[in-house]
Amino acid sequence: MPQQVSMAFALPGGEKSTPSRNRPIDLVHLTRETFGNRALEIEILNLFSRQICGIVDRLAHANPDDRVRLAKSLKGSARAIGAFRVAEMAEAVEQAPSDLRKIKDLRPVIDDTRDYIAAITR
């Protein structure tokens, strides 16, 4: 019995659910990261939404070194909350900071993610 108790605390919230990379935010991943605290999830999602609001414009006007820095920051934040498509696109910008097409391709992914966050945090 003690082993079952420790396992329950080791895998809080969503341990029997499977991640979904079909949504802009993997909610199973987010729940694990926030230990199932819904208020914390909403706070983190709103912070992320504000962070990514103007990121595409900043990336487009930045020099290549700053693009790498911005893209790396975006990638880390996106992975932390389960916005894996944003993270993949940010990594592409990070790896090819002079390719403006990759930045342009990021915009609709960011817009979809912000719309999704707005819908689930109402």
Score class of each variant (00 low, 15 high):
Ile120Leu: 11
Ile103Leu: 02
Leu70Ser: 04
Ile81Gly: 04
Asp66Gly: 01
Arg101Gln: 00
Thr31His: 02
Ala83Val: 04
Ser77Tyr: 03
Leu74Cys: 13
Met7Val: 13
Ala78Pro: 08
Arg23Asp: 15
Thr18Phe: 00
Ser20Asp: 14
Arg122Leu: 06
Arg114Cys: 04
Asp99Asn: 13
Pro97Arg: 04
Asn46Asp: 12
Gly13Thr: 15
Glu33Asp: 01
Ala119Pro: 05
Thr34His: 01
Ser17Asp: 15
Ser49Asn: 15
Ile110Phe: 00
Leu70Thr: 07
Glu15Ile: 07
Asp57Glu: 12
Glu91Gln: 08
Glu88Lys: 15
Asn63Asp: 14
Arg67Tyr: 04
Val86Thr: 08
Pro108Tyr: 08
Ala78Phe: 07
Asn46Gln: 14
Arg107Phe: 06
Ser77Arg: 01
Ala78Thr: 12
Leu40Ala: 03
Leu74Asp: 07
Gln51Leu: 00
Ala87Gln: 11
Pro19Leu: 12
Leu106Gln: 05
Pro24Ala: 03
Arg101Phe: 00
Gln3His: 13
Leu74Glu: 10
Ile120Ser: 02
Asp111Cys: 00
Ser73Asp: 12
Gln95Leu: 10
Arg23Lys: 12
Gln4Asn: 11
Val56Gln: 07
Thr113His: 04
Asp57Gly: 07
Glu15Arg: 10
Thr113Ile: 04
Gly82Asp: 10
Ser98Phe: 02
Pro2Met: 02
Ala119Trp: 08
Glu41Phe: 01
Arg38Thr: 13
Pro108Gly: 06
Met89Ala: 13
Cys53Ser: 14
Arg67Gln: 09
Ser20Glu: 08
Met1Ala: 13
Val93Tyr: 05
Pro24Met: 03
Thr18Gln: 07
Thr31Gly: 07
Arg107Ala: 15
Val109Arg: 11
Leu45Lys: 14
Arg58Lys: 14
Glu43Ile: 01
Leu40Asn: 02
Asn22Ile: 03
Gly13Leu: 14
Glu94Thr: 02
Ile110Glu: 02
Ile103Cys: 04
